[in-house]
């Protein structure tokens, strides 16, 4: 009786691994990648703002704007002291540069926490997969 059940169980476990755990893992990893890309954007923005602060004496700023497909046009910003930053859900808040930096710091902390938790989830799912595989092997 037991020996007959075993292959069935193994099959079920494997199905579980393949269809549930691996799918979960993929989702979690995708989310984490998204968070990471947000983080890198933020860090880039932080860098830009820091550069702007260094050249604070000039109020105006020249830059190049991408029109799409890597076609750039010169752009001029008259007042570089204020910056609009996305706070999520399509809302933008006008910050001064220092405020923006503070906001970015908080935001990066938050994102790092999220990414950490996602990493944790991912490793837990991996552990589950390992466990199930190991069990099925023993069986």
């Amino acid at each position: 009786m037991v020996s007959q059940d075993i292959p069935e169980k193994v099959l079920r476990y494997e199905k579980f691994v393949n269809e549930t755990l691996k799918e979960d893992l993929r989702k979690v990893l995708d989310q984490r990648d998204e968070v990471y890309s947000d983080l890198s954007e933020l860090l880039q923005l932080k860098n830009v703002i820091e550069r702007l602060q260094e050249s604070q004496e000039k109020p105006s700023l020249k830059t190049k704007v991408d029109l799409g497909c890597n076609f750039y046009v010169q752009a001029k910003v008259n007042d570089a002291s204020m910056i609009f930053v996305s706070i999520g859900f399509g809302f933008f808040v006008e910050f001064t540069l220092t405020e923006a930096l503070r906001f970015i710091g908080k935001k990066t902390d938050h994102l790092t926490r999220i990414s950490d938790s996602l990493t944790h989830d991912a490793s837990r799912i991996k552990a589950h997969i390992k466990l199930v595989l190991e069990v099925s092997r023993i069986l």
């Binding site: 700023l61 910003v77 007042d79 609009f84």
Partner: peptide, 8 residues
């Protein structure tokens, strides 16, 4: 994530 008002 960010922009400024400006001119081309």
């Amino acid at each position: 994530l960010a922009f400024m008002p400006g001119q081309l």
